[in-house]
Design a protein around this nucleic acid. Sequence first.
DNA 1: GATGAATGAGTATTCATTCAT
DNA 2: AATGAATGAATACTCATTCAT
Lengths: 212, 212, 212, 212
Amino acid sequence: MSTTPRTARGTRTRARLVAAAEEVFGSLGYHDASIVKITEEAGVGLGTFYLYFEGKQAIFDEVVEDLNRRVRHAMTEAARAAGNRIDAERAGFRAFFRFTAEHPALYRIIRQAEFVSPGALRMHYTRIVNGYVEGLKAAREAGDIREMDVDTVAWALMGIGEMLGMRWVLWNKEADTEAGAVAEIPEAEFEEMMRFIERGMAPVAPGKGAGE
Amino acid sequence: MSTTPRTARGTRTRARLVAAAEEVFGSLGYHDASIVKITEEAGVGLGTFYLYFEGKQAIFDEVVEDLNRRVRHAMTEAARAAGNRIDAERAGFRAFFRFTAEHPALYRIIRQAEFVSPGALRMHYTRIVNGYVEGLKAAREAGDIREMDVDTVAWALMGIGEMLGMRWVLWNKEADTEAGAVAEIPEAEFEEMMRFIERGMAPVAPGKGAGE
Amino acid sequence: MSTTPRTARGTRTRARLVAAAEEVFGSLGYHDASIVKITEEAGVGLGTFYLYFEGKQAIFDEVVEDLNRRVRHAMTEAARAAGNRIDAERAGFRAFFRFTAEHPALYRIIRQAEFVSPGALRMHYTRIVNGYVEGLKAAREAGDIREMDVDTVAWALMGIGEMLGMRWVLWNKEADTEAGAVAEIPEAEFEEMMRFIERGMAPVAPGKGAGE
Amino acid sequence: MSTTPRTARGTRTRARLVAAAEEVFGSLGYHDASIVKITEEAGVGLGTFYLYFEGKQAIFDEVVEDLNRRVRHAMTEAARAAGNRIDAERAGFRAFFRFTAEHPALYRIIRQAEFVSPGALRMHYTRIVNGYVEGLKAAREAGDIREMDVDTVAWALMGIGEMLGMRWVLWNKEADTEAGAVAEIPEAEFEEMMRFIERGMAPVAPGKGAGE
DNA sequence: GATGAATGAGTATTCATTCAT
DNA sequence: AATGAATGAATACTCATTCAT
């Protein structure tokens, strides 16, 4: 997207800008983030920004894209490392929360995107949901979960993740946690949420219902 | 909030401003909404605005408060009208989606609030969730749903509602629907979502599991 | 053009801006003239500018329009005051030079207009030329000048006026004249120019040729 | 002017830059012409520009100088080829218009120069006028034209040429002429203009007045 | 000789807010 | 109560110029 650097130095500079933008968008929000603030954070001159990005929106889109790629990567890696299918699912979910806990900017940025870049917003959710859909389809075929409209359920999972993540990460009950500290996911609540989800998807087969 | 009008005329003016603000914030977003645009939409002079509101944030908070009150009212009314507890739950949910479909501004406005007015954002979700919590507690006591951490589940429901609402209302599959048309909630998906939720909450008792 | 003020105060402010713009455009040129400089010269706040003008171009066009109206006014007034037709012509020409001597900005501004506002440029020349054309037609009908394509001749007169005006006003031989001093039109050269023009237009009739 | 290349390759590069600058200045105007655009048009790297020119003004001056040299060359060549003095004069004028028709950039560039490079502007007009002065002096001595202040008349001719040229070349009545097409000088108007000029200069001697 | 990454001063424009009427 | 003229801080973006490679 935007202009691609032609030298190694340029590549470094561009990457520094994206990192700085994530930081600044995350803490100030899109509108209060200014290009100057981003370039200062990145330690480059103002004009340099326009060497690599067409404007504020362009770098915003790129930050969303970048975070999206990384959160999905974290999720698939975690799932892959898990033993069986049901553990994989939990691992993926946990990775999602861990990532957002470490990158609260993700929420803040995404939730801004409605007016800033609707396309980026939709892309972000859709890609993650697609990951869920794949997983659910496989599980369904394996008989691990019941017959159901995986699409609707996948979006529901996305909603659960977003809302609980917001609650845990952004509204960190111990609001007095010093800034910068990574929010801890409350294990008990996470488990409660997972059980709720698993009951909702449990296969029909009597005796092995997730309800117990 | 802000200044209260002393005359009937003043009350009307103030109300016109709130209505205009809902419209403008909803279609333009907080930052692109300007006070001039709001006053023009309201058909009053620019200076008049500051007679009733301390500033842009103040009217934003009021709009959020107003929408929140109305959506909750719609939900409780619908639930009250229902026959039994399980129907009440569905009715409430359906009312939520209907309201958001009729007021897409709600989403757009709320999702902006993260940086504009974090307090208003939290207030909005918390009040709705509290409504869920009350309902769930009663249902739990009646044995209609299982023993569980209703708090966590209530937030999960909030998340499901927000995400599916966004999907149905904002990303209206038939994007060619003429602007202004109220989005139709897809009944099949709504039912699928409700079943997912009900299975997640179904009481343990064998034989009456929501799973079937 | 642009926004019209609704109050007397506004009208005054707007007029001050136009005057300031003439001054600043004239001494700095379009590109080095900044809105701040114009508003400072006018003694109003920066934002005030945008109350009355859509932008830099808009006020430029208005300045051209204004100067054009005034130079034509000066010319017709002078011509009207003259006794006979031949004197009227000279008087008009002289008024043109006097006006440009008093408003050197006219040249500087007009000559910039090629890229800034081609429409304004053309309008300026065309309106003045139209004045010449009217005069020449009347003179031709009265037999004061010969049969000829008055259009072409009128444009030629415009060119002569512009070039000699530029020479006299802008390149004021005594360049050491303190800035702000009004350039003096060299009478001898003016007369030489008028004779050249008059010979070019003189009626065919022998005996009354302007050539003698 | 500026740095002189030391190699044949350098000479070519420099020439390409001047040509590109004529093109870019001509179509975009001084201020909207950027060094990048010039170097892109020339097909060289940005930094290369500063190898041969001190800055934007420097290349502008050079372009003016170059165009000036070429238009005068065209005029003297045409005049030399003509048989007698009166034909030489017409031929020179015609060459002037033809050149400007083929290089409309000339006008556009020159008319910008007022603030960009007043020296270049004056130089341009003065050199051409000097050519006229030489011709007029010779003609006067030969008795082909009357006694008169050739200086003033020469500037008048310059003005006529510039204004009618602008009219013919820039405002090409058939504006629908496809871009890039060379404007055709309207013969009838050209002749009318020449007759006007010739009458203005015609010798006193009765019987051979240009007036007939 | 040639290049293009880096820079930051400069500028048009927007908009929340104040205040005299 | 209502108005709208006035303000200036804030900000995205451009571009001539430098310089290390």
